[in-house]
């Protein structure tokens, strides 16, 4: 069983406390939801968990190994971070091929399967620049799940999606959970994640508190 921990994590930038002594532990096969207003610190918390920022205090541990010290990155991590895009001049498939080429652990067929899984056509010749917002959201999710990650971090994955799109994303997230993945999902809209999370936390001004265990999950 994999565990992801964030221990007493504080991040201060230019005197502003962005993350305030966050202390959480996540386990395989569970979905953890984070809700909060825009600017509450959700995205920053996820960046911290990915190791993209350095803590002012505290640390992130994956299977008891400290991120940035014992390990450089979380192995098999799938990420969707808000407002971070892919190469707009390449097709969705080409973008995913480029990213898959970094670790080189999956075949083209597996990449195409993940694109189909999110409801897109891998043979689509349009570049990402010409994708709608919803299609971009789907292709970014495809890059996150294509390598069968052990940890899946999704920041506002249902943004710009219609009802069918949201249902598709929920279905995929549940499949990842059933596979044994640690899934973290953030949304400013609580209704987006209600019913799929095992635990829900609320973020406010950099602080995180437990809200409830979702019995519907």
């Amino acid at each position: 069983m994999n565990t992801l921990e964030i221990n007493n994590y504080t991040k201060i930038i230019k005197g502003a406390v962005i993350l305030d002594n966050i202390d959480l532990k996540f386990q395989s096969g569970k979905i953890y939801g984070f809700v909060g207003y825009n600017g509450s610190g959700k995205t920053m918390l996820f960046r911290a968990l990915c190791g993209l920022i350095k803590p002012t205090n505290g640390c992130v541990k994956y299977n008891s190994q400290i991120l940035g010290k014992d390990i450089s990155v979380i192995p098999k991590l799938g990420v969707v971070i808000e407002n971070i895009g892919l190469y707009p001049e390449f097709t969705g498939l080409k973008n995913l091929q480029l990213l898959a080429g970094i670790n080189n652990t999956i075949s083209d067929e597996e990449i195409k399967a993940s694109i189909r899984k999110v409801g897109l056509d891998p043979e689509d010749k349009r570049t990402v620049r010409k994708y709608s917002l919803g299609m971009r959201q789907r292709i970014v999710l495809a890059q996150a799940i294509m390598e069968s990650p052990d940890v899946l971090i999704l920041d506002e994955p249902t943004n710009a999606l219609d009802e069918d799109g949201v249902n598709d994303i929920h279905r995929i997230i549940k499949e990842e959970k059933d596979r044994g993945c640690i899934v973290l999902i953030a949304s400013h809209n609580r209704s987006d994640i209600n019913g799929i999370c095992d635990e829900i936390y609320i973020m406010d001004k950099g602080k995180c508190r437990f809200l409830k265990e979702d019995t519907n999950a």
């Binding site: 993209l52 707009p88 970094i102 670790n103």
Partner: peptide
């Protein structure tokens, strides 16, 4: 700024 996040979460170098 475009895709380094997805790159650096896969490989730290």
């Amino acid at each position: 700024t475009v895709s380094a996040t997805y790159y650096f979460t896969r490989r730290a170098s």
